[in-house]
Each structure stands twice: as C-alpha cells, then as structure tokens.
Nucleic acid binder design. Structure first.
Lengths: 139, 139
DNA sequence: ATGGCTGCAAACACTTTGCATCGGC
DNA sequence: GCCGATGCAAAGTGTTTGCAGCCAT
C-alpha cells in the first residue's frame, strides 16, 4: 500500500467515491506517515485551501474502516495516521513523542544504530476478545 | 503499593497535603483498578457528594507525578488509572475494551485459561529517547 | 495564618455531527 | 439526477484552568 493508486482503487472497490479531496488526502497520508489530523489538514490546505478539517477526519475514518489506514494514539491526546504497510513496530521518544519505525524481526543493537534512539522501555499489549464479546461474535 | 497507607505517606513525603478528598481517592484507586476518571468520580461522590471532577483529575495527576499511579490509554479516547504495583501486562478486548491483567512471565495458554480471552493480536511499543532529546537530557 | 487544595464554571483541544450545497457516478 | 461527500459551524467529549473561599499543616 505504498502506492496511492492502490489506496484509491480500494475506495472504488468499496463503492466509495473518489473525490479530489480524498485523492489528495490519500497522497498526503502515503507520503507523510505518522502525521496527525491537524498536520494532514495543513498540508492539504496548501493545495486545496477550502478543504475542511471535518473532511480530513471523515476520510481518515473511511480509510480506517477499509483497513487501509491505521490510527495510533501513543500516549498523547490525539491520533496519528499511517497507511497499513508491512507490519512494523514503533519506537517512541519518551520526551517529545518523535516516532521511528522498526522493521521486524527486531535486533535491538541494530535498532539503536539505525534510529539513534536510546531504548529505555517496552510496552506490550495483548489484544483479543473477552469471553462476553467472543460469545456475542459467535452468533 | 497495594496499601492505601503507603500511597498516602508518599504524598506526605513529597510535601503534599493529605486532604480527605485525596485519602478517599487513593482508597478508590487502590481498590478499583482500571477505572477512568469519570468512574472514579462517581464512586467518590457516593461517599463525598460535593467532590468535583477537577479534583479527581488534579489528584490523579499529582499521584502520577509521584510515580504512584499509572495512566493508560488503550485505544480509547480517555485514560484509565491504576496504582503502580508489580509489573504486568494488559490484555484488552478488541470489542468492548475490557481489561485483564497478565502477570509476568507470560504463558499464552495459561493466559487464555485464566482470563477466558481469545488473544488475537499483540502490540509492542518501544519507548526511549530520540537523538535530539538524549542530547538535551545530557546537559 | 498562610499557602496549598477544593468546588464550580468556564475554557480547551480533539473529534464528531447537522445541514445546506455540490459534484462523482 | 441521485445520493454520497463537502464546507462550515455548532455540538460533544475528555481534560485543564481561573478564581474565590477553605482547611491541613
């Protein structure tokens, strides 16, 4: 999904319209990973001044529902977005929140060398279905 | 830190006042882990009707700064709080957000048995310092 | 008694929604 | 031409802040 065209066609496949706003936003998201909604909006406005922030949020939501975009809240009060690509991890700066991508499999020495980050902590979160939700999903 | 008294004395140690509001909130946080600010506020109001939500947030912030409480945003738009105790992981329900604690070390079969959850995904996040922040921290 | 803490309400930041209009299909 | 998508503004959430009075220390 590094290709804007592929993302655009997944809109068509879902019966969604390809408006100029969406085409522009897709391009921005592909080319500027890890940005938040406001940043995406600002970049978009430089090419299309009348585009609204609501459109950015609505488009991001649609793309997320299509499974094409992933949103992430990394300890901050707002989300950052990126196109789903190969699976990878994020390395977050504990002070400023700056993000680096880490390919799998992980070699911590290589991570340190490649990113310049000092890794101080790891957070692991397991996601699944609790018994009640698993039961409901069975129906 | 399973003991409310220990938490209260860490307030004193930091030169903070032990008000009845704080004593109450500490008790609630120790006895009801994983609650969010609104839930904590509701529980608190049953014992102290005039306590304000702002006080809940301010107290949580103070306790977090003391390193006694930990806040967590698990894919939702608000935080949940718990007293820092032994290190453990969280298992989040992908549908309803229900939380289960997982002791370390991890045995996934044992996790499934003990919690009843079906684990479908793991999120690993590495935290550290980016080069710029590491440089600033050196001064 | 004094400075930190509280309740209350207003302010904030991010995100969502209502509605009239526009334009892709 | 229809119906989904947009821009704008207003509403909604969760959280923070300003301020006058209160009360642990």
């Amino acid at each position: 999904m590094r290709d804007p065209a592929a993302v655009r066609s997944s809109l068509a496949a879902a019966g969604k319209r390809l408006t100029p706003e969406r085409a522009l936003l897709v391009d921005i998201i592909v080319r500027h990973p890890h940005r938040d909604a406001t940043e995406i909006h600002q970049i978009a406005r430089s090419k299309r001044p009348r585009i609204g922030l609501a459109t950015v949020y609505r488009t991001l939501r649609v793309l997320e529902e299509l499974g094409v975009v992933e949103s992430r809240r990394l300890g901050e009060d707002h989300s950052h977005y990126e196109v789903r690509d190969r699976e990878h991890l994020h390395l977050v700066c504990a002070v400023c929140g700056a993000l680096a991508d880490i390919p799998l499999p992980i070699d911590l020495h290589e991570v340190a060398r490649a990113t310049g980050y000092t890794v101080t902590r790891a957070r692991l979160e397991l996601v699944g279905l609790c018994p009640a939700c698993a039961r409901k999903a069975d129906r």
